[in-house]
Design a protein around this nucleic acid. Structure first.
Lengths: 216, 216
DNA sequence: CATATACGATACTCTTGAGTTTCGGATCTT
DNA sequence: AAGATCCGAAACTCAAGAGTATCGTATATG
């Protein structure tokens, strides 16, 4: 259990004899598992649901993964690839500009889907630390890391004080978005995110209402 | 379903004839349900577990609640009474003093227990809005409301600007504590909470590092 | 003491879902 | 075309848990 690295993706064993091809269906199956997981939660989700969603046979899933638990661990771990791409971050010259540039409808939808998956796993996180780390690494940490990089760059260019608690501040937006989506069940819009930037983050890094290039 | 008010607590019907007493066991049973819920989550929890924990028979639970779902709805709704008492809030004269005065080991333990209960319910909140509202009202909103009152008083005494987004700021501590407990699974200590107060909340309300009575 | 009621324990039914097996058909290799 | 292998569908086994029913007991009333 709790094997989180993904040793096989494509081209797993040596293709010996006449068979169609290797586990090419894996991506569809894992995507189907994530969809069902987001919709019904881990306990509500059944293997038959995943198989039907992927238009695959239940036996196919069990030929590939030993159990339901391993399947979802694999599915969550594989999320690190899919979803939003945080490898090329905006660089507008100001921290506020960078943070605002991160607000995109696609990014919001991606966050909401990831949070639904997280909600489906939540009750297991306390009992399986490995799954908790994997879920965090795949679902939340990418966004947190992006925030951290933007703030670190702002420190390096002398825009904000080096005394800021970057590790703390980079968690604020993700945690507030999670609260709003999962608990309050309100939509996340750019107005909410701008409020966080201007009402919380900018003051916290020492850039008060008059210390930046806002036009409002 | 989703009947959230609690019409009976003690003295429910007219005691007609010779029976021991009415549903005096209700509090123990509901407390047991909350314990099991926090430990195993809604789906992992069984009626037998709750009955055993409360040293009651399974039939007793079904004589009192029609289903497992109704039992936990009742249990969550009844949490509004128990737990920390936010009716008498500190009044130290300064917002920072009030916020710091709210930090107590007992309050932290209470929050962590409530968050475990929340985690156990999380996957159902998307499918049952009534349960989501009840869980929020019982588990998180009391603390949020307390924060809001403290900030509102700071506005009224002229300590902070009336332009602060109090409804937003009062969510920061709860959401960050939830993130830390449920996702990062790190302990909540006073150092973390002080960091939030001094590194996030105070700057956001316009009380920078030199504008308050801190001695550090 | 007699009676009625609520309780705890336990045995029971019934549904659901995890995991297994079987089988016919499709596809790739040779 | 022949053979080997993988796949999807569906029938199957098995365990667990929700909810029900029964029974002996304890207790309060009268």
């Amino acid at each position: 259990m709790t094997q989180l690295d993904i040793p096989e993706d494509t081209a797993e064993q040596s293709p010996k004899l006449g068979r169609k091809r290797d586990h090419t269906r894996d991506p569809e199956i894992l995507a189907a598992a994530l969809e069902v997981l987001a919709e019904t939660g881990y306990d509500g989700m059944t293997i038959d649901m995943v198989a039907a969603r992927a238009k695959a046979g239940k036996a196919t899933l069990y030929r590939r993964w030993p159990s339901k638990g391993e399947l979802i661990i694999d599915a969550v771990a594989c999320m690190k690839q899919s979803g939003n791409d945080y490898s090329r971050l905006p660089d507008t010259g100001s921290l506020r500009g960078d943070l605002v540039a991160m607000i995109k409808p696609l990014s919001i939808k991606d966050s909401e889907k990831k949070l639904q998956i997280l909600a489906g796993l939540m009750s297991m996180l306390s009992h399986d630390p490995g799954l908790a780390d994997a879920a965090n690494a795949a679902l939340l940490e990418p966004k947190v890391a992006a925030n951290r990089v933007l703030m670190q760059r702002a420190i390096e260019r002398g825009e904000i004080s080096a005394g800021c608690d970057i590790d703390l501040l980079s968690l604020i937006t993700p945690s507030m978005v999670a609260y709003r989506v999962l608990i309050l069940r309100k939509p996340v819009d750019s107005a909410f995110l701008i409020s966080l930037i201007d009402g919380v983050l900018m003051p916290a890094v020492g850039l008060g209402p008059s210390a930046n290039g806002r036009t409002d």
